[in-house]
């Protein structure tokens, strides 16, 4: 990472004309960059114009430009909604618990895998661990429903072990929803999320380990003083990015698992918007809520980035 940056620096001091020549010399690279830039312009920046329907009463047949302005009406409606605070709290908690449990679990799992000497065993474990990532969400939720039913394997096991006297209605009791959501999320994504750490781990210079061994460091010391500092920037960047997604909780899994009885803990902003915005075709309202989400997420991202930069000198920018 550091090397190319140093190589560029002296070049920057050259006269302006040189930049054009340099670009021409690297035209192949720029050509390869072009599709990515085009992608972002077309699919990420141009649609932002549509976000203005959050301040309009959108009518598909009048078009975005000709729909009447309504100011902050949709935002007010959302904030005044009886369930606003509950939705915010549920969204926040589900995200936070996912982050709290899944994020470190993936890291620990990657570290454990890294310590495995047996190459074959390592790749088998890794493959098995990220397989759930490829199972369709519908199937995952079907499995969760079957497992957690009275008469499902979880209840049968609990009964057999004498932990409970009668089966627990996991999916009907609101107090269980977050556990089920995060627990199944753990199973779904630990293997997959650990891949990026494994990549970072393989980037650590082996000579550091050799030097440590000569200095008499055991494996625990190596982990503390070489491995962890080596991947810390990756971990922090991922953490910052994750915090920037805190309110963007996927609604599809919740829609498939919740019911009116678990609304008190399971109903989140996106599921509410789904029932209210998409089903009722109230797109301006959905856009307003989406915009609100993005503003909060962006603020969180900025804050996390700033803290990280101050504390560890690692940051996104």
């Amino acid at each position: 990472m550091a090397q190319p940056a140093r190589a560029v620096q002296p070049a920057a001091k050259r006269p302006r004309l040189a930049r054009g020549r340099r670009m021409y010399a690297n035209r192949g690279l720029y050509l390869m960059l072009l599709p990515v830039v085009a992608y972002f312009l077309i699919f990420e920046y141009k649609p932002m114009y549509g976000a203005i329907i959050a301040f309009k009463q959108f009518n598909a047949y009048a078009g975005i430009a000709d729909s009447p302005w309504v100011g902050f009406q949709h935002f007010e409606r959302f904030f005044e909604s009886y369930y606003f605070w509950r939705l915010l709290k549920n969204t926040f908690l589900l995200s936070l618990y996912s982050l709290l449990f899944i994020f470190p679990a993936a890291l620990v799992f990657a570290l454990l895998l890294n310590e495995l000497r047996h190459k074959k065993l390592k790749s088998v474990v890794q493959t098995i661990s990220y397989l759930p990532h490829f199972i369709s969400l519908i199937v995952i939720c079907g499995m969760i429903i079957d497992f957690t039913k009275p008469g499902g394997i979880i209840n049968s096991a609990l009964l057999a072990l004498g932990v409970v006297d009668s089966p627990i209605q996991f999916l009907i009791l609101p107090e269980w929803f977050r556990t089920i959501y995060v627990g199944s999320g753990l199973w779904q994504s630990v293997g997959w999320n650990s891949i990026i750490y494994l990549a970072a781990l393989s980037g650590i210079n082996p000579s550091l380990y050799e030097a440590a061994v000569i200095d008499g460091a055991d494996r625990w010391k190596q982990l503390l003083h070489i491995t962890l500092p080596g991947i810390l920037p990756t971990v922090l960047i991922l953490l910052i990015l994750n915090i920037g997604q805190l309110l963007n909780i996927g609604w599809d899994k919740i829609i498939l698992l919740y019911n009116p009885s678990t609304y008190p803990t399971a109903d989140v902003i996106s599921t509410f918007v789904y029932r209210r915005g998409i089903m009722e075709a109230d797109y301006s309202f959905s856009a307003a809520v989406g915009l609100f989400n993005s503003v909060i997420n962006f603020t969180l991202l900025l804050a996390a980035n700033r803290i990280s930069r101050k504390a560890t000198k690692t940051s996104l920018w």
Binding site: S81, Y82, Y83, P264, F272, R275
Partner: peptide, 13 residues
Amino acid sequence: VPLMADIQTYAAE
């Protein structure tokens, strides 16, 4: 529509 979104949620619950 906006009133019923809350009412239906509440009634079902």
